[in-house]
Design a protein around this nucleic acid. Structure first.
Length: 215
DNA sequence: CTACCGATTATCT
DNA sequence: GATAATCGGTAGT
């Protein structure tokens, strides 16, 4: 069986385009021990794009430092940072070759594999709140600083993204929790059409934000 | 149901 | 010394 991973080229495009197209793809998290492999997985239902000189809200805006270094250079690498004294956020670097930095924050997934382990990691049993936010998701998947700078396009990595067929709807909204460049519609969420009505995926955080329809 | 607010600490300047 | 791409609890409607 061959698994189709998102490859380097996928991430070597405009950060906003990559953020939008990551919606509906599968995020896989592996734990390898001597004799077993534990696999956690979910469908990406919420992302945000963070740019470079075009985006005052981006960690990369003021230039490279030891924290944000993986937003720069080669694309398809994880950028994991710690914030608010408690939480980790998980990004994948993505930008065109001519632009030097940019990344996509994965804010929420719909759990599809290893839900029991996610419940253990989160110490919460409420399925709808297991992974519906960037800090909740990293905790459910046990992602932290040790996962910074790993190659997401390599199937030997402990985190990678699988390609999927995406036929549902993607909406955009303003980004969450920032003070600068608030008006960019660079947040993307998963939705589907149900008898003509647009229904936002249940695992998306803050579903009441004003949305724009894409295409 | 929505809105506000305090916790907590690595990292930046 | 100040900040922060959040969360969860509590108060209010």
């Amino acid at each position: 069986m061959t698994i189709n991973l998102l490859n380097r080229k996928f991430f070597e495009r405009e950060t906003i385009v990559v953020a939008k197209e990551m919606i509906g793809k599968k995020l896989v998290r592996l734990f390898r021990t001597d004799s077993t492999i534990i696999k956690l997985a979910g469908i990406i239902v919420e992302t945000e794009a963070y740019g470079y000189l075009d985006d005052k809200a981006s960690h990369a805006f003021k230039g490279m430092n030891s924290r944000n270094r993986y937003m720069f250079g080669d694309v398809g690498y994880s950028y994991v940072y710690f914030t608010y004294g408690n939480h980790y956020c998980f990004n994948v670097s993505a930008h065109t070759k001519t632009k030097d930095a940019g990344a996509v924050l994965i804010r929420a997934i719909e759990p599809i594999l290893g839900i029991n382990m996610m419940i253990k990691n989160r110490k919460k049993i409420d399925i709808l709140n297991l992974t519906s936010g960037p800090g909740k998701m990293t905790k459910a998947l046990a992602i932290d600083k040790k996962d910074n700078g790993i190659d997401i396009t390599d199937s030997n990595s402990t985190i990678y993204l699988e390609d999927t067929i995406v036929s549902n709807v993607v909406l955009s909204t303003k980004r969450i929790g920032i003070e600068m460049d608030k008006d960019k519609y660079w947040r993307f969420i998963y939705a589907e059409k149900d008898r003509g009505k647009i229904v936002i995926n249940r695992y998306v955080s803050r579903k009441k934000e004003n949305t724009k329809f894409l295409e």
